[in-house]
Write a protein that binds this DNA or RNA. Structure first.
Lengths: 278, 278
DNA sequence: CCTTTAACG
DNA sequence: CGTTTAAGG
């Protein structure tokens, strides 16, 4: 299997290519062909969510060519986020918040220096959080912490990038069947308000993918495994690149690496790949 | 897929063909081709162990052509024994012993009448019982109950047949690597002593398969999934037809339906099929 | 509908 | 090495 060349797969020589993908179990993703996808894309920084595997297995699968920082969840086989990079980070941090989320496997950060510019990258996995469940409460607690962290990063870094599965669709453009999901976790008004706030002047982050894609439906990044959701593109845009304004302005293009006929769908999420020219 | 004709598959017109098979999950067995095996064998009474499925699913899979008595385990997805017959039983009983084993899904009996002769058939699934574990204690308790039941059946029935996965190899002929298993559950002296007792004059049952096969190694009925145990025939004879003497004497032949190149292995156990000419 | 673990075998 | 279920998604 190989990936056909696409305009987006031709990377500008100076560009930094950052991919985020919820792999829904990295072992299953590799069984389904993730390695072929990765080999065909010249990714510099790979942000993973729902790794769901012990650290040793993650390193075995990705191989020696990556520097890896991996925040495992205390619960075996659950959550887990990682940042794999071709160059070594100068610092890493494995969670946000207090002890409650210390071993949640939902947040990891790495600081890089590229040609003198400092860039902080975070891989985030927000709770799915069924409405009314205890997990929904955790989701709000986590989004509160994330708000604080975004504010802090915005104030203290040259450039910062928070990518990952944020498990919320921001606007009606972001969910195919938005009318049917107004009371469902992932499109609740209270959840969406967090994103309004992220992109407000006071917090000041940019939704890179939406900015590049413009006011179109989607492009979606997640489709249920059930039925024909994928074939019908009945998806949700819940995976994001959030960037500080200057970094966001440097984004050349964004691509959702939706599987085509000649390649495999290796997760229920598709990779979201953005090239930045710092 | 079809079964090549074998001498044993040609059933005498008056014979009663009784098969026992530990299916290790009837859903998985059907996925792996059990139905093709069953369609090719003209079985009259099919005794199953480790059914591991809800009653409704068992009836769906086997279809309408069978009368089924199914003793489910209280623990979902565990154990479960059944007797499927082409003719209706005149009575059924779904356990032995007191409340402790009432919902164990390890014993089921059916009484049949064939041309005026009464025959009781039981499908039994004795605990695997790792040595030293609490399950080993349960195994001995169950073997005690089975001893009592065998004694009772012997005294009260014209003909009785107890088949199933008894999870004990009786003699050194019954396990390929018997030397390496002298301290392993399934070949412990204390377990084997039960079988000496079953076949003693005082209890008076007959090991039909051994009687017909003679003093040979095997024929084995179970092989670990691991490694090349199956290819190397490194098996255990732990599935049995135990019969009362007159019924045992009527046995025409016994066959272990080991999968051949042209058919699938649908369980870690192979069916043991015996024809009786009452 | 899929991925893990867990217990059991 | 394979079967289930269970929780999580």
């Amino acid at each position: 299997m190989s990936l056909a060349p696409t305009p987006e797969s031709t990377k500008h020589p100076d560009a930094l290519r950052v991919a985020t993908v919820n792999v829904n179990g990295i072992r299953a993703a590799y069984r389904r062909g993730m390695q072929e996808w990765l080999a065909a894309r010249d990714v510099d920084i790979l942000c993973l969510q729902e790794v769901r595997a012990p650290d040793e297995i993650v390193r075995d699968l990705l191989g020696d060519s990556w520097h890896i920082v991996h925040a495992e969840a205390a619960a075996k086989g659950r959550a887990g986020v990682a940042i794999a990079s071709r160059t070594a980070p100068i610092a890493t941090r494995e969670h946000i918040g207090d002890a409650y989320f210390a071993t949640a496997g939902r947040w990891v950060e790495a600081d890089f220096e590229f040609d003198g510019a400092k860039v902080t990258v975070a891989s985030a996995y927000v709770h799915s959080g069924e409405a009314g469940s205890p997990q929904q409460e955790d989701k709000y607690r986590f989004l509160d912490l994330m708000t604080a962290r975004l504010t802090d990063l915005r104030g203290t870094r040259d450039h910062a990038l928070v990518v990952g599965d944020l498990n919320v669709g921001h606007t009606t453009l972001d969910i195919r069947n938005w009318k049917g999901n107004l009371k469902k976790a992932g499109f609740l008004p209270e959840e969406r308000a967090y994103f309004d706030h992220f992109f407000s002047e006071s917090v000041g982050w940019v939704d890179v993918h939406r900015t590049l894609a413009g006011e179109m439906d989607g492009p979606y990044t997640w489709w249920s495994w059930r039925g024909k959701a994928y074939d019908n593109d009945a998806g949700w845009r819940i995976d994001y690149h959030l960037a500080t304004p200057e970094l966001a302005a440097s984004a050349l293009h964004a691509v959702v690496d939706r599987a085509h006929s000649w390649e495999a769908r290796f997760s229920d999420h598709a990779p979201l790949v953005v090239d930045y020219k710092l």
